[in-house]
């Protein structure tokens, strides 16, 4: 075998440290002039791919892929600064959104085209929290899958994945090709260093459109309404213990 061809799909999302606000029309969260960055789970995916190579697992190529608005190129550059070899950007219009099934179908085509034999994805993107793409992709490809990995080991064509479950860990073993989704415990993503940021500018970034892939990405879901969680009600101060007991009774807590 000539070495792994790893595909890492990444997504540009509202920065996780930013408090999201619902837009006026209540159709989505506000994204205009809000700080965006790479989905944190996808950072773990890139990091893991790079670490596999650093651990001397034969890796012939790490390809970062993103479908999103023109700005998604920024996160592809970040991925390349972290160690991906090249990027593929499928450009979408500013407001165009893909659903997990659409993304999975798109990725299936990319995997076929790139002849990837390992796909590492974040377990979910923090904007819609669907957590479905990895599983759907594995289904479409007919590959093995290991979700929410906290440790990945590769020897030859056999992959051992540890995942944290309630009350312990579960260890899965499968053969390549396969799909792995990452969880927070997997690694600690590196900073993009300046020399690498400079180098990443020169790495190839292929620009594509949805038409190049001929997939049916029609959206099937309809968002009815997006609302903020109900605001927490302020507490009241009571004068003394009797006051508190009276208040608790009034509220039916006693």
């Amino acid at each position: 075998m000539s070495g792994l061809r790893i595909l890492v799909p990444i997504k540009r999302v509202v920065d996780y440290a930013v408090k999201p606000r619902v837009n006026r029309a209540q159709t989505a969260v506000e994204t205009a002039s809000v700080k965006h960055s790479m989905n944190p789970f996808d950072e773990l995916s890139i990091e893991e791919a790079v670490r596999l190579r650093e651990r001397k697992v034969p890796v012939s190529e790490i390809v970062a892929f993103s479908a999103g608005p023109p700005k998604a190129q920024d996160i592809l550059r970040t991925a390349m600064a972290m160690g991906a070899d090249r990027g593929i950007h499928v450009q979408l219009a500013e407001k165009e959104e893909l659903e997990p099934l659409g993304v999975a179908k798109l990725l299936q085509k990319v995997v076929e085209k790139e002849k990837s034999d390992l796909v590492i994805l974040g377990k979910q993107s923090i904007d819609d929290d669907a957590g479905q793409t990895g599983q759907m992709l594995a289904g479409l490809l007919g590959w093995s899958q290991a979700t929410q990995a906290s440790q990945v080991k590769i020897e030859g064509d056999s992959v051992t994945v540890t995942r944290e479950v309630d009350g312990g860990v579960e260890t899965l073993k499968a053969k390549l090709p396969m799909v792995i989704t990452t969880d927070l415990r997997l690694n600690e993503p590196r900073y993009a260093s300046l020399p690498n940021i400079m180098k990443a500018k020169k790495k190839p970034l292929e620009k594509k459109t949805l038409k190049d892939f001929e997939v049916d990405i029609t959206n099937r879901l309809k968002t009815l309404k997006v609302t903020e969680p109900p605001a927490r009600k302020g507490g009241v101060k009571v004068e003394d213990v009797d006051g508190m007991i009276a208040k608790l009774k009034e509220l039916g807590a006693l």
Binding site: D15, Y16, A17, S37, Y191, A192, S193, L194, M198
Partner: peptide, 24 residues
């Protein structure tokens, strides 16, 4: 600026925060 300080070797190495968490 980053290109300048790297090329003229004013700084030896460096990182740029990619998201809010890294800024913190």
């Amino acid at each position: 600026f980053l290109e300048h300080v790297m090329e003229t070797e004013i700084v030896s190495d460096g990182v740029l925060a990619q998201d809010q968490t890294q800024i913190k």
